[in-house]
Design a protein around this nucleic acid. Structure first.
Lengths: 178, 178
DNA sequence: CTATATATGAACCGATCGGTCTTTAAATGG
DNA sequence: CCATTTAAAGACCGATCGGTTCATATATAG
């Protein structure tokens, strides 16, 4: 997964994968089939990890507003400095392959939908607790937040300062939180 | 430019470029040097086009709020349906190369900076005209808007419906406009 | 200890990569 | 009309691509 993460699909050559998996060429093909299948596996794992993290952040037993703050702080951390430069396998894959590869597109779309749903849930709970500003629609705000954090991943490739990104994220959340 | 746009840097092979430029192999190398140089040229043109469009949208003689609406509507148009699936050369390049290629990173970073500056200017003018909601900082809101539209380019790769993206953009702008 | 199944590394495959170079055709100047 | 320059076409280069095959070790079962 790491090697696709840092080099992209086309940018990753078989030798890179052999080095990363410590497998021989034959064994790798026996275990995973071709490069594309292995890539889909890596992408699936990346998505599962991301959703698990989100589920943890938005655990219904915790304060949804705290969850949103943690969620955004995590993205800020991952999109600033050296972490930002490393980028995001999902966003890179979306840009590189989603337009041409149906299998990839399905996964990317379902991830964004799942993520948006979880953020909307958290916002709904915040709204029920009276913590949202007037007139804020959870579904709409969730779409905004998802676009925003994915945009962070893009601008993060230029390794911006953590503090600036954090302030920006705070300012956006302040639009929604009472 | 178009061929890099739709296939990415690694995904574009010399024959693709020859077909697109209607040049022979020799002539292409005589004219542009190597593939990387040609790519930088294409990226520069893409950036120049984007900045020219932004300058037009945010023309100081026009209403800055109208400019912001037009700006966002343009991004909505370019990130929904088939247009969205096509993607954005700049964002794709940022994800594919900005982390490893200093020349590319410079260009990407300076584009984001320039774009953010122009959006901030428009917001400042809107603020001076009393059209911004209370407490909205132009610089901060500009960063939010840039991240948001770049995030639209990412989610746009799954070809979402125009109406949904437009509603989301409207909702975000409503956070800032009085 | 021997026979068999398993897994490994490396040779090998045709195709294609980015890049060069030579040959041929076209255009230009006298 | 010929000579010279310019540019186009494509053969060609070594390297590397993703993928397969095979010969050889290693381990396991009897």
């Amino acid at each position: 997964m790491d090697v696709f993460w840092s080099r992209g699909y086309h940018g990753t050559a078989l030798p890179d994968l052999l080095r990363a998996t410590k497998l021989s060429r034959g064994s790798l093909y026996a275990a995973f089939g071709d490069k594309h299948s292995l890539f889909l596996r890596a992408l699936d794992r990346y998505i599962a990890d991301a959703l698990a993290r989100i589920d943890f952040e938005f655990d219904p037993r915790k304060d949804p507003v705290d969850g949103l703050r943690t969620h955004l702080a995590g993205y800020v951390e991952r999109t600033s400095g050296a972490n930002g430069r490393r980028g995001c396998l999902l966003v890179a894959t979306a840009m590189e392959l989603a337009g041409k590869d149906a299998e990839v597109c399905r996964r990317v779309a379902s991830f964004f939908k799942a993520m948006e749903g979880r953020v909307a849930d958290a916002l709904s709970r915040a709204k029920a607790a009276g913590k949202l500003a007037d007139g804020v629609e959870p579904a709409s705000a969730a779409r905004i937040l998802v676009c925003f954090v994915e945009g962070l991943r893009v601008t993060g490739k230029t390794a911006p300062a953590r503090a600036a990104s954090q302030a920006t994220a705070d300012a956006l959340l302040d639009c929604f939180i009472r």
